[in-house]
Design a protein around this nucleic acid. Structure first.
Lengths: 223, 223
DNA sequence: ATCGAAAGTTAGGCGACCTTAAACTGCGAA
DNA sequence: TTCGCAGTTTAAGGTCGCCTAACTTTCGAT
């Protein structure tokens, strides 16, 4: 298990597979290609390389799935990413919509020691600025699947996390008052895949289309 | 002059040329190869690429020299490197002998914004932990050439900086009390390229061979 | 059950870097 | 002045990661 240093590209693929398929589902190469904005053949080739390296198992025409080794590598990057996002925000004053891109590059580059020192400087945090849990350095972990605002039934909800991938979307959410931890009441969806209407605690109503609502993760009001 | 993003490798070559040849001297490809631990043909090929990109001028069998563009790129990396070293030491508690390697990787990865925030967090510092000046973001700059302890005449000296490239050496220097800012008296060299003997302020005497003494940069006691 | 579109893979190419082996240049020594 | 050798460059080949074009498989619709 000599963790042969990953290239940036390899790491990106592992992360893509991880968050498209979670810990164990089969992921198609074209889904990966779309996610990483590369051509389908590029994804196929890489996926074969990942299989050779023991990071994934690959069945032609079926897809890939991470091995334990690949999963560990993906989780380490995810941990780096989320620690970095939080660090950039908390310690260096980055606004939450600009931490993603920076973390995306740095996550491949930081050493174990830097990871640990960042973790310590932040007091061993458990969540990043967008509400996503930070995987522990080792030990069991599974990201609990959450409802999205799009799929959740009407009722009182708490925003748990929001996707960090689109800075513009984050700025918009921030502007209308939607952030992790915020409580809101979903008034339900208009018929035929219509938008979701929510009322925030300050009484403001917002109408959100699928693009947006599917990127907001929620739980029902805590018992 | 659209600063086409540099690859890590390209950046490493530019830095190597910069600190082998300074701002303007011709540097041989084999010197670069030795510095970067690559084969001579690799260095030749890269140097030709650098010339194509406008980062350097290249005369076969003679060597390379940075252009203004290449110099700017090298200095930006040097600035990143030194800011990062200081940041890692000051804000994250890294020991001074371990900041180099981390900075060496990160320097290629950080954005302009992160550079600026680090600079601000450190209060716009002018020196890294090893005593090297930090190039300004823009504007004139030239690293003043210093004597080394090996080449300096006997007399009272102030340590200005020490090479950061070898962690073990740094640990040793630290152990014997040699750090930037320290005052010492050089008692001169033994005949036939013999070692240098110095007396530190606490009275301790140290005998240093060329390997070490050539990596310690000094100035004569300030007037 | 079969046929065709969509999904996925193979083939063939390219650029960046790296290697070793072979060819060349330029310069000091005789 | 020429010879030889150290220093350099060219040649040839490998890997990684990307691309487009062409081929193959799968699967749903008939």
């Amino acid at each position: 298990m000599p963790t042969t240093a990953l290239t940036t590209s390899t790491g990106d693929y592992l992360k893509a597979i991880y968050d498209l398929g979670g810990a164990s589902a089969w992921v198609s190469s074209s889904a990966i290609a779309a996610r990483l904005a590369v051509s389908a053949p590029s994804a196929t080739a890489m996926v074969q390389r990942l299989a050779d390296q023991g990071h994934a198992s690959y069945v032609p025409y079926r897809g890939v799935r991470l091995t334990a080794q690949g999963r560990a590598a993906a989780l380490e990057l995810l941990r780096h990413h989320r620690l970095l996002e939080l660090y950039l925000q908390q310690k260096l004053g980055f606004p939450w919509d600009r931490v993603h891109d920076e973390a995306e590059r740095l996550e491949h580059t930081i050493s174990e020691e830097l990871e640990d020192r960042i973790d310590a400087a932040l007091g061993h945090p458990t969540e990043d600025p967008h509400g996503h849990p930070i995987p522990p350095k080792r030990g069991p972990w599974r990201e609990e699947p959450l409802d999205t605002l799009w799929s959740a039934p009407a009722g009182t909800l708490v925003v748990r996390s929001v996707s960090d991938r689109d800075a513009e979307m984050l700025r918009h959410l921030d502007a209308i008052g939607i952030r992790p931890g915020v409580r809101m009441r979903s008034l339900g969806r208009a018929p035929f895949d219509g938008p979701v209407t929510v009322r925030l605690e300050d009484g403001a109503e917002q109408v959100l289309g699928e693009r947006l609502a599917a990127r907001i993760f929620v739980t029902a009001e805590a018992a």
